[in-house]
Nucleic acid binder design. Structure first.
Lengths: 237, 237
DNA sequence: GAGTCCCTTATAGTCATACAATTGATTGTA
DNA sequence: TACAATCAATTGTATGACTATAAGGGACTC
């Protein structure tokens, strides 16, 4: 498989990535408040032990997510939270481990409820042949895992299944949700209980409806799954 | 007003911003295909007449939007489109002027239909006092503009009104939509016709419902506006 | 005293160069 | 053929110098 098409996450193990993560974490946790200006570049470079080159690349990453803005003579300030792009995979991954944010998946569920049924409906209408094949492959994997249950594998495959639906919607704006969803699912691996059965029947209903091209049924099936599953995990609780 | 809370857009007039825009445009338009690797850094720096520093900062911006990934000895390759974050203000702004993308607002409308009614409902339930005040101020401006009609001002204020609703939803994941919406509305200024009346009554219904704290009514009012308005512009056509 | 203009200065923005780290490709060897 | 060592191309990082920008203070005018 072409690497350009493989990974979803954006874990950047380089220095600039680490710096970006470190600062982002402080901003997201509120340790650095909105409106506050960061110490100057030389100071922070010294403090973090990196060169200006790496540091500035890190800042560009934060900038492009709407978290900071820089001006000469002023410095780099943290923008208002309303400008942060929470629908960004990296940003979500940075939130992992921030204690005060661990309940944010509840907010995400409210978004899923609004958008995912419609995504399923679109997928039923517009999924290409290739997308149907991949959806089938993924669903079959889910069935296998449901039989011989493994928590981590289930979550990963479940996320992939739902992501595939968003991709199959044929709408550019729906696609990013699939990626965000995958990022959120990674959280659940960290602190989800090992018990509870999977909603394989509910997923089958969604799958069947999409394959049958029945958008109304797909819409309802998705709604039904989200209704049953308080955690948005594909697990009944 | 604190500058950290003022601007929504992210127009970066610096060199790295220009470079980012230039390359992003070529990627978005398909001139540089998915999976393709860019020429090496020294080559592109020469070609564009900038230093590696500025160039690499530009690439970091694209990277953080999921558009490219870099590896030593391999180069920088364009990632699969499914990884691009279309729910990003800068990315949307870069799309302006790409001829083949000018109908993408139709896709966006499909997203709005799914999410905005729910945002209105949440806003009715959870808008803070300050948010209600700002919403009121904005709505009053809309009314004034509707009287003494000005196309550009209408679009700008209309966008601000809808953005305020997303912010008032109290859900971190709904907020970015408001910003994306503003970016999309900027397009309309470019190629919208000057005729057509504004849907001030429909907007008033949404506003009243939110102020009354009636989420069901707010939901329906938003649906109704989107139904009536084929372009999602707040204008009947 | 209030306002305007200009100068100073701190800060980010840009450049050039050198070196380090990574990894695909090549070559060598069993 | 399979595996290991080497090479080389490309990005990653560091450093130092210079430029551009704009906040803040001071002198001047009204």
């Amino acid at each position: 498989m072409n690497t350009a098409f493989a990974n979803i996450g954006q874990t950047n193990s380089h220095l600039n990535g680490q710096v970006a993560r470190e600062i982002a974490t402080k901003i997201l946790s509120g340790e650095i408040a909105e409106g506050e200006t960061l110490p100057s570049e030389p100071v922070l470079c010294e403090k973090m032990g990196v060169s200006r080159t790496a540091f500035r690349e890190a800042i560009k990453i934060l900038y492009s997510k709407g978290m900071v803005e820089s001006k000469p003579r002023v410095g780099t300030r943290v923008r208002c939270k309303t400008n942060w792009n929470f629908l960004d995979v990296q940003l979500l991954e940075w939130m992992v481990g921030i204690e005060t944010k661990k309940d944010i998946y509840l907010e995400f569920l409210d978004l899923r409820k609004a958008i995912e049924p419609q995504a399923c409906a679109f997928a039923a209408e517009r999924a290409t042949k290739e997308q149907r094949i991949e959806l089938t492959t993924t669903f079959q994997r889910m069935c296998a895992i449901a039989e011989d249950f493994d928590q981590d594998q289930w979550i990963e495959t479940d996320a992939q299944f739902h992501r595939m639906i968003f991709i199959s919607s044929g709408n550019s704006f729906y696609v990013p949700f699939g990626n965000v969803l995958v990022a959120m699912f990674k959280w659940f691996i960290l602190f989800s209980s090992k018990d509870g059965g999977v909603c394989i029947d509910e997923h089958r209903e969604i799958y069947d409806a999409i394959m049958a091209g029945d958008s109304t049924r797909a819409f309802k099936a998705s709604q039904s799954l989200m209704q049953k599953d308080k955690h948005g995990l594909g697990k009944s609780s």
